[in-house]
Amino acid sequence: MNPTPTVAEDPSRLAEFEARIAADGTIEPKDWMPARYRSQLIRMMSQHAHSEVVGMLPEGNWITRAPSLRRKMILLAKVQDEGGHGLYIYCGTETLGVDRQELVQQLLDGKAKYSSIFNYPTLSWADMGAIGWLVDGAAIVNQTMLAKASYGPYARAMVRICKEENFHKRQGYEIMATLANGTPAQKAMAQESLNRWWWPSLMMFGPHDKDSSNSDELMRWGIKRKSNDELRQRFINLTIAQVKAINLTVPDPDLRYNEATGDWETGPIDWDEFWRVVKGNGPCNKERLAARRAAHAGGAWVREAALAHAEKQQ
Protein backbone atom coordinates (compact mmCIF):
# COMPACT_ATOMS: atom_id res chain seq x y z
CA MET A 1 0.00 0.00 0.00
CA ASN A 2 2.83 2.37 0.86
CA PRO A 3 5.08 2.67 -2.20
CA THR A 4 8.01 4.54 -0.63
CA PRO A 5 9.92 3.21 2.35
CA THR A 6 9.14 5.06 5.54
CA VAL A 7 11.92 7.43 6.52
CA ALA A 8 12.48 7.99 10.21
CA GLU A 9 11.85 11.72 10.55
CA ASP A 10 13.27 13.96 13.25
CA PRO A 11 10.31 14.00 15.70
CA SER A 12 10.73 17.64 16.72
CA ARG A 13 10.87 18.88 13.13
CA LEU A 14 7.91 16.68 12.22
CA ALA A 15 5.92 18.08 15.14
CA GLU A 16 6.81 21.64 14.10
CA PHE A 17 5.79 20.88 10.51
CA GLU A 18 2.47 19.35 11.52
CA ALA A 19 1.73 22.26 13.84
CA ARG A 20 2.30 24.60 10.94
CA ILE A 21 -0.10 22.61 8.74
CA ALA A 22 -2.67 22.56 11.56
CA ALA A 23 -2.43 26.36 11.77
CA ASP A 24 -3.16 26.56 8.00
CA GLY A 25 0.40 27.62 7.25
CA THR A 26 1.87 27.41 3.76
CA ILE A 27 4.89 25.22 3.06
CA GLU A 28 7.40 26.70 0.60
CA PRO A 29 10.07 24.87 -1.45
CA LYS A 30 13.00 25.59 0.87
CA ASP A 31 11.11 24.70 4.06
CA TRP A 32 11.80 21.45 5.84
CA MET A 33 9.22 18.80 4.97
CA PRO A 34 8.87 15.08 5.67
CA ALA A 35 10.27 12.93 2.84
CA ARG A 36 6.86 11.38 2.47
CA TYR A 37 5.15 14.77 2.05
CA ARG A 38 7.64 15.54 -0.72
CA SER A 39 7.20 12.19 -2.47
CA GLN A 40 3.40 12.29 -2.24
CA LEU A 41 3.38 15.81 -3.71
CA ILE A 42 5.72 14.83 -6.54
CA ARG A 43 3.46 11.88 -7.34
CA MET A 44 0.25 13.86 -7.19
CA MET A 45 1.49 17.02 -8.93
CA SER A 46 3.26 15.17 -11.74
CA GLN A 47 0.16 13.03 -12.36
CA HIS A 48 -1.82 16.24 -12.50
CA ALA A 49 0.63 17.82 -14.98
CA HIS A 50 0.59 14.68 -17.14
CA SER A 51 -3.23 14.79 -17.14
CA GLU A 52 -3.18 18.33 -18.53
CA VAL A 53 -0.78 17.32 -21.28
CA VAL A 54 -2.52 14.06 -22.24
CA GLY A 55 -5.82 15.94 -21.93
CA MET A 56 -4.92 17.90 -25.06
CA LEU A 57 -5.24 14.75 -27.18
CA PRO A 58 -8.99 13.95 -27.04
CA GLU A 59 -9.85 17.57 -27.89
CA GLY A 60 -7.06 18.01 -30.41
CA ASN A 61 -8.90 15.30 -32.31
CA TRP A 62 -11.70 17.78 -33.20
CA ILE A 63 -9.81 21.00 -33.95
CA THR A 64 -9.78 20.45 -37.71
CA ARG A 65 -13.45 19.44 -37.70
CA ALA A 66 -14.93 22.19 -35.50
CA PRO A 67 -18.27 23.28 -36.99
CA SER A 68 -17.43 27.00 -37.27
CA LEU A 69 -14.44 29.31 -37.14
CA ARG A 70 -15.67 30.62 -33.76
CA ARG A 71 -15.73 27.11 -32.28
CA LYS A 72 -12.36 26.34 -33.81
CA MET A 73 -10.68 29.40 -32.27
CA ILE A 74 -12.22 28.57 -28.89
CA LEU A 75 -11.08 24.95 -29.05
CA LEU A 76 -7.55 25.95 -30.06
CA ALA A 77 -7.39 28.39 -27.14
CA LYS A 78 -8.66 25.74 -24.74
CA VAL A 79 -6.18 23.13 -25.87
CA GLN A 80 -3.36 25.68 -25.63
CA ASP A 81 -4.50 26.45 -22.06
CA GLU A 82 -4.26 22.75 -21.17
CA GLY A 83 -0.67 22.70 -22.39
CA GLY A 84 0.00 25.81 -20.31
CA HIS A 85 -1.57 24.19 -17.25
CA GLY A 86 0.77 21.24 -17.68
CA LEU A 87 3.69 23.68 -17.70
CA TYR A 88 2.49 25.52 -14.55
CA ILE A 89 2.24 22.27 -12.64
CA TYR A 90 5.50 20.78 -13.92
CA CYS A 91 7.20 24.01 -12.83
CA GLY A 92 5.57 23.71 -9.41
CA THR A 93 6.71 20.08 -9.17
CA GLU A 94 10.28 21.05 -10.03
CA THR A 95 10.41 23.20 -6.88
CA LEU A 96 10.40 19.88 -4.98
CA GLY A 97 13.80 19.04 -6.44
CA VAL A 98 12.81 16.86 -9.38
CA ASP A 99 13.61 17.54 -13.03
CA ARG A 100 10.78 18.00 -15.52
CA GLN A 101 12.54 15.80 -18.05
CA GLU A 102 12.57 12.96 -15.54
CA LEU A 103 8.82 13.35 -14.98
CA VAL A 104 8.07 13.45 -18.70
CA GLN A 105 10.17 10.33 -19.16
CA GLN A 106 8.10 8.51 -16.52
CA LEU A 107 4.98 9.36 -18.50
CA LEU A 108 6.49 8.20 -21.79
CA ASP A 109 7.72 4.97 -20.17
CA GLY A 110 4.19 4.23 -18.96
CA LYS A 111 5.38 4.40 -15.32
CA ALA A 112 3.33 7.47 -14.38
CA LYS A 113 -0.43 7.76 -14.17
CA TYR A 114 -2.65 10.49 -15.55
CA SER A 115 -6.39 11.02 -15.21
CA SER A 116 -8.22 8.03 -16.67
CA ILE A 117 -10.89 10.24 -18.20
CA PHE A 118 -8.52 10.96 -21.10
CA ASN A 119 -8.48 7.30 -22.05
CA TYR A 120 -11.99 7.61 -23.46
CA PRO A 121 -12.47 8.44 -27.16
CA THR A 122 -14.09 11.61 -28.54
CA LEU A 123 -16.57 10.20 -31.02
CA SER A 124 -18.75 13.22 -31.85
CA TRP A 125 -18.58 17.01 -31.80
CA ALA A 126 -20.87 16.95 -28.76
CA ASP A 127 -17.97 15.39 -26.86
CA MET A 128 -16.21 18.78 -27.02
CA GLY A 129 -19.22 20.12 -25.13
CA ALA A 130 -19.36 17.25 -22.65
CA ILE A 131 -15.63 17.45 -21.91
CA GLY A 132 -15.62 21.20 -21.29
CA TRP A 133 -18.76 21.07 -19.20
CA LEU A 134 -18.29 17.83 -17.24
CA VAL A 135 -14.57 17.03 -17.30
CA ASP A 136 -13.39 20.60 -16.77
CA GLY A 137 -16.34 21.13 -14.43
CA ALA A 138 -15.22 18.20 -12.28
CA ALA A 139 -11.63 19.41 -12.48
CA ILE A 140 -12.69 22.87 -11.23
CA VAL A 141 -14.40 21.34 -8.17
CA ASN A 142 -11.21 19.42 -7.39
CA GLN A 143 -8.83 22.26 -8.19
CA THR A 144 -10.77 24.88 -6.22
CA MET A 145 -10.05 22.69 -3.21
CA LEU A 146 -6.39 22.27 -4.23
CA ALA A 147 -6.03 26.07 -4.47
CA LYS A 148 -6.01 25.88 -0.65
CA ALA A 149 -3.39 23.11 -0.54
CA SER A 150 -0.64 23.47 2.05
CA TYR A 151 2.14 23.51 -0.56
CA GLY A 152 2.49 27.08 -1.85
CA PRO A 153 3.63 26.45 -5.45
CA TYR A 154 0.83 23.91 -6.01
CA ALA A 155 -1.84 26.16 -4.51
CA ARG A 156 -0.70 29.15 -6.58
CA ALA A 157 -0.71 27.12 -9.81
CA MET A 158 -4.28 26.03 -8.99
CA VAL A 159 -5.50 29.59 -8.51
CA ARG A 160 -4.23 30.46 -11.96
CA ILE A 161 -5.68 27.29 -13.51
CA CYS A 162 -9.13 27.68 -11.93
CA LYS A 163 -9.51 31.15 -13.44
CA GLU A 164 -8.80 29.76 -16.90
CA GLU A 165 -10.91 26.63 -16.55
CA ASN A 166 -14.03 28.64 -15.94
CA PHE A 167 -13.92 29.60 -19.62
CA HIS A 168 -13.43 25.93 -20.52
CA LYS A 169 -16.53 24.91 -18.64
CA ARG A 170 -18.65 27.75 -20.01
CA GLN A 171 -17.73 27.06 -23.62
CA GLY A 172 -18.47 23.36 -23.15
CA TYR A 173 -21.86 24.00 -21.62
CA GLU A 174 -22.64 26.45 -24.41
CA ILE A 175 -21.90 23.73 -27.00
CA MET A 176 -24.21 21.30 -25.16
CA ALA A 177 -26.98 23.88 -24.71
CA THR A 178 -26.81 24.82 -28.39
CA LEU A 179 -27.06 21.19 -29.50
CA ALA A 180 -29.79 20.44 -26.97
CA ASN A 181 -31.85 23.32 -28.40
CA GLY A 182 -31.16 22.31 -31.99
CA THR A 183 -32.70 19.74 -34.32
CA PRO A 184 -33.78 16.35 -32.91
CA ALA A 185 -30.57 14.84 -34.34
CA GLN A 186 -28.45 17.51 -32.60
CA LYS A 187 -30.25 16.99 -29.32
CA ALA A 188 -29.75 13.22 -29.65
CA MET A 189 -26.05 13.81 -30.24
CA ALA A 190 -25.82 15.86 -27.04
CA GLN A 191 -27.72 13.24 -25.03
CA GLU A 192 -25.61 10.38 -26.40
CA SER A 193 -22.45 12.24 -25.45
CA LEU A 194 -23.74 12.99 -21.94
CA ASN A 195 -24.59 9.29 -21.59
CA ARG A 196 -21.00 8.31 -22.33
CA TRP A 197 -19.25 10.98 -20.23
CA TRP A 198 -21.46 11.09 -17.12
CA TRP A 199 -20.12 8.06 -15.25
CA PRO A 200 -16.45 8.54 -16.19
CA SER A 201 -16.77 12.16 -14.95
CA LEU A 202 -17.99 10.93 -11.57
CA MET A 203 -15.05 8.50 -11.46
CA MET A 204 -12.63 11.43 -11.88
CA PHE A 205 -12.87 12.09 -8.13
CA GLY A 206 -11.32 8.69 -7.43
CA PRO A 207 -12.47 5.72 -5.37
CA HIS A 208 -14.91 6.05 -2.49
CA ASP A 209 -13.28 7.39 0.69
CA LYS A 210 -13.23 3.96 2.31
CA ASP A 211 -11.23 2.58 -0.66
CA SER A 212 -8.86 5.51 -1.20
CA SER A 213 -5.40 4.56 0.04
CA ASN A 214 -3.75 7.99 -0.19
CA SER A 215 -6.58 10.19 1.07
CA ASP A 216 -5.94 10.09 4.83
CA GLU A 217 -2.35 11.14 4.51
CA LEU A 218 -3.08 13.82 1.91
CA MET A 219 -5.79 15.28 4.13
CA ARG A 220 -3.69 15.12 7.28
CA TRP A 221 -1.02 17.19 5.55
CA GLY A 222 -3.45 19.68 4.10
CA ILE A 223 -2.71 18.74 0.49
CA LYS A 224 -6.35 17.76 0.08
CA ARG A 225 -8.94 19.60 2.14
CA LYS A 226 -11.98 17.53 1.18
CA SER A 227 -12.52 13.83 0.52
CA ASN A 228 -13.22 12.21 -2.85
CA ASP A 229 -16.85 11.55 -1.94
CA GLU A 230 -17.45 15.09 -0.68
CA LEU A 231 -16.07 16.56 -3.90
CA ARG A 232 -18.01 14.13 -6.08
CA GLN A 233 -21.24 15.00 -4.26
CA ARG A 234 -20.60 18.70 -4.73
CA PHE A 235 -20.06 18.16 -8.47
CA ILE A 236 -23.25 16.07 -8.79
CA ASN A 237 -25.34 18.65 -6.97
CA LEU A 238 -23.99 21.47 -9.14
CA THR A 239 -24.38 19.56 -12.38
CA ILE A 240 -27.87 18.07 -12.10
CA ALA A 241 -29.44 21.54 -12.21
CA GLN A 242 -27.41 22.31 -15.32
CA VAL A 243 -28.54 19.05 -16.96
CA LYS A 244 -32.17 19.91 -16.28
CA ALA A 245 -31.78 23.46 -17.59
CA ILE A 246 -30.97 22.15 -21.06
CA ASN A 247 -33.58 19.36 -20.95
CA LEU A 248 -31.16 16.45 -21.00
CA THR A 249 -31.07 13.52 -18.57
CA VAL A 250 -28.26 11.65 -16.86
CA PRO A 251 -28.05 7.93 -17.62
CA ASP A 252 -28.94 6.82 -14.10
CA PRO A 253 -32.36 5.30 -13.35
CA ASP A 254 -31.54 5.38 -9.61
CA LEU A 255 -30.90 9.12 -9.40
CA ARG A 256 -32.95 10.60 -6.57
CA TYR A 257 -33.08 13.75 -4.51
CA ASN A 258 -32.62 13.35 -0.79
CA GLU A 259 -34.84 15.96 0.87
CA ALA A 260 -33.10 15.55 4.21
CA THR A 261 -29.55 16.18 3.01
CA GLY A 262 -30.30 18.27 -0.08
CA ASP A 263 -28.07 15.92 -2.10
CA TRP A 264 -28.68 14.24 -5.40
CA GLU A 265 -27.88 10.56 -4.86
CA THR A 266 -26.73 8.41 -7.77
CA GLY A 267 -26.87 4.70 -8.38
CA PRO A 268 -23.71 2.60 -7.90
CA ILE A 269 -20.57 3.56 -9.83
CA ASP A 270 -18.97 0.77 -11.88
CA TRP A 271 -15.61 0.57 -10.12
CA ASP A 272 -14.57 -2.44 -12.20
CA GLU A 273 -14.59 -0.15 -15.21
CA PHE A 274 -12.63 2.48 -13.27
CA TRP A 275 -9.86 0.04 -12.28
CA ARG A 276 -9.77 -1.49 -15.77
CA VAL A 277 -9.03 1.93 -17.28
CA VAL A 278 -6.59 2.94 -14.50
CA LYS A 279 -4.66 -0.26 -15.07
CA GLY A 280 -4.16 0.48 -18.74
CA ASN A 281 -7.07 -1.29 -20.39
CA GLY A 282 -9.36 1.60 -21.26
CA PRO A 283 -10.46 2.28 -24.83
CA CYS A 284 -7.56 4.66 -25.64
CA ASN A 285 -4.70 4.07 -23.16
CA LYS A 286 -2.34 2.72 -25.79
CA GLU A 287 -3.28 5.32 -28.38
CA ARG A 288 -2.69 8.21 -25.94
CA LEU A 289 0.76 7.01 -24.90
CA ALA A 290 1.72 6.31 -28.49
CA ALA A 291 0.69 9.86 -29.46
CA ARG A 292 2.74 11.37 -26.61
CA ARG A 293 5.78 9.30 -27.50
CA ALA A 294 5.55 10.22 -31.17
CA ALA A 295 5.19 13.94 -30.33
CA HIS A 296 8.14 13.83 -27.92
CA ALA A 297 10.39 11.96 -30.34
CA GLY A 298 9.30 14.16 -33.25
CA GLY A 299 10.17 17.31 -31.28
CA ALA A 300 13.62 16.12 -30.18
CA TRP A 301 15.42 17.82 -33.06
CA VAL A 302 13.71 21.13 -32.25
CA ARG A 303 14.82 20.97 -28.62
CA GLU A 304 18.37 20.13 -29.65
CA ALA A 305 18.51 22.79 -32.36
CA ALA A 306 17.27 25.49 -29.95
CA LEU A 307 20.04 24.61 -27.48
CA ALA A 308 22.68 24.52 -30.22
CA HIS A 309 21.51 27.92 -31.50
CA ALA A 310 21.70 29.46 -28.02
CA GLU A 311 25.20 28.11 -27.49
CA LYS A 312 26.35 29.49 -30.83
CA GLN A 313 25.18 32.98 -29.83
CA GLN A 314 27.32 33.01 -26.67
Binding site: Q105, L108, A297, A300, R303, E304, A306, L307
Partner: peptide
Protein backbone atom coordinates in the same frame (compact mmCIF):
# COMPACT_ATOMS: atom_id res chain seq x y z
CA UNK B 1 17.82 10.40 -29.66
CA UNK B 2 18.48 8.52 -26.47
CA UNK B 3 16.10 10.42 -24.17
CA UNK B 4 18.23 9.96 -21.06
CA UNK B 5 21.12 11.66 -22.88
CA UNK B 6 19.01 14.70 -23.77
CA UNK B 7 20.07 17.89 -22.03
CA UNK B 8 17.39 19.99 -20.32
CA UNK B 9 16.86 23.60 -21.29
Amino acid sequence: TNPSAERSW
